[in-house]
Structure formats: structure tokens, C-alpha cells
Computed example of a mutant assay.
Amino acid sequence: MQKLKQHTVFQQTKDRINTELKTISEKNASDLELEDLWDKIKSSLTSVAEKELKPDKRIKKQEWMTNTILELMEERRQHRNKNNDKYKELHRRILHAIKEAKERWMQEKCDEMEILQAKHDTFNLHKKNQRNNRNTEKEN
């Protein structure tokens, strides 16, 4: 539903649905029984929804999360309960990548605060500090 709020996605989906319905009506829809017609309409609507409105698999829940970590997590999910050694190896790689990403993210935040402090911008320094404190409280 979130994707439909984007105007371009909404327009593309609307156009695809209209073309699908036109092809059904052109194929002698009057000759089909009601159940068959409904099945065709239903299947065309679901196929358009799957193609156009498919949710993104990777969702960043943390600011420090990277696409590489998300890809490793997806790969680890595929090996769950199948290949235990590969699963463990991927899990170790993920933990290592998470540690590095968090460290990099924290360093960037510290650098930003140091720049504000060097400029003697105590107002924005205080705001950034409060924002960072709220974010870390949410994580814990």
C-alpha cells in the first residue's frame, strides 16, 4: 500500500490493470461463464500486484545497516536448517560486518559533533547529542 502512494507507481499499476482488463474483455468475455471470468480477472489483478507492488525484501531497521549486511543476512536465511557449517560461517561474517558498520557510523557521528564543537555551535551540538541519545535508547 505504501508503494501506491507514489504517483508514478500508482499510474503504472493503474495502466497495467486497465490493459489486463481490456485484453480480458476483448477475448470474448461474454462467452465465458461467470466463474471463469472472475478467475481471469482475479489472476490478472494478482499478477499485476505481484509485479508492480512487490515489497522490498531488504529493509534497513538501523541507520548503520548496509546493503552488504542485508545481502549476507538473506544468504544466511537460505542456508538455515540446510547447511549448518555455511550458516555459521555467514553468521560470523555478519557479526563482523555489523561491528565494523556500527563503529564507522559512530565515528561519523563523533566527527560531526567535533566539527560543531570546533565551530562553537553549542545549540546544534546539543540538538545532535539529544538526537543521538534518543536513537541509542531505541536500540536498547
Score class of each variant (00 low, 15 high):
Lys99Phe: 01
Ile98Met: 00
Trp105Lys: 08
Lys61Cys: 08
Glu71Thr: 07
Asn133Asp: 13
Arg16Glu: 07
Lys60Trp: 02
Lys86Gly: 15
Arg93Leu: 04
Trp105Asp: 07
Glu63Val: 00
His91Met: 04
Arg93Lys: 10
Glu26Met: 09
Leu4Lys: 06
Glu108Asn: 02
Thr8Gln: 05
Ile41Asn: 05
Gln2Phe: 04
Val9Trp: 09
Thr19Glu: 12
Glu103Trp: 10
Ala49His: 11
Asp39Ser: 10
Glu33Ser: 15
Arg104Cys: 02
Met1Ser: 14
Thr122Gly: 14
Asp121Cys: 02
Lys22Phe: 01
Phe10Asp: 01
Asn28Leu: 13
Glu137Leu: 14
Arg92His: 04
Leu72Phe: 03
Tyr87Arg: 06
Lys42Ile: 06
Lys22Thr: 14
Ala49Tyr: 13
Ile69Tyr: 00
Lys5Arg: 15
Ala49Asn: 10
Arg80His: 09
Lys57Ser: 03
Arg92Cys: 01
Glu71Ile: 02
Ser25Glu: 14
Arg93Ser: 09
Lys86Tyr: 12
Thr68Lys: 04
Lys42Thr: 07
Lys27Glu: 13
Lys27Arg: 15
Ala29Thr: 02
Glu52Gln: 08
Asn84Thr: 15
Lys102Pro: 00
Leu95Tyr: 00
Phe123Trp: 10
Lys22Tyr: 05
Gln12Asn: 03
Ile69Gly: 00
Glu89Trp: 05
Asp85Gly: 06
Asn135Glu: 14
Asn133Phe: 14
Met65Glu: 12
Lys127Thr: 11
Ala97Asn: 00
Thr19His: 11
Cys110Ser: 07
Ala29Val: 08
Lys128His: 01
Met65Gly: 02
Arg77Gln: 15
Gln11Val: 09
Arg58Ala: 05
Glu50Asn: 15
Ile17Gly: 03
Ile24Phe: 06
His79Leu: 14
Lys14Gly: 09
Leu4Arg: 06
Glu103Met: 12
Ser30Ile: 03
Lys54Met: 09
Arg77His: 14
Arg104Tyr: 01
His7Gly: 14
Met106Glu: 13
Thr19Phe: 10
Tyr87Gln: 10
Trp38Ile: 06
His91Gln: 11
Val48Thr: 01
Lys99Leu: 00
Lys3Tyr: 05
His120Pro: 11
Lys22Gly: 09
Thr13Phe: 00
Gln117Asn: 12
Lys102Met: 00
Asn67Pro: 08
Lys82Ala: 13
Arg93Thr: 06
Glu100Met: 02
Thr13Gly: 03
Ile24His: 06
Ile69Glu: 03
His79Gly: 12
Glu33Gly: 12
Ile69His: 03
Lys109Thr: 07
Leu95Gly: 12
Lys5Ile: 11
His126Trp: 04
Gln12Pro: 10
Glu139Trp: 10
Leu34Trp: 09
Cys110Asp: 11
Arg16Lys: 09
Asn84Ser: 15
Asp31Pro: 04
Asp111Gly: 10
Leu70Phe: 07
Ser30Asp: 13
Gln2Ile: 12
Asn140Asp: 09
Met73Ile: 04
Lys5Gln: 13
Met1Lys: 11
Arg131Ile: 09
Lys22Val: 11
Glu137Gln: 13
Lys40Met: 06
His91Leu: 04
Thr8Tyr: 07
Glu63Arg: 01
Glu100Ala: 00
Asn18Cys: 08
Ala118Gln: 10
Glu63Ile: 02
Thr68His: 02
Lys128Gln: 09
Lys14Ala: 05
Glu74Phe: 12
Glu112Pro: 05
Asp15Gln: 06
Thr66Glu: 01
Glu100Gly: 00
Ser25Val: 08
Arg93Glu: 01
Ala29Tyr: 05
Ile59Gly: 00
Glu114Cys: 08
Thr66Tyr: 03
Ser47Glu: 15
Ser47Pro: 06
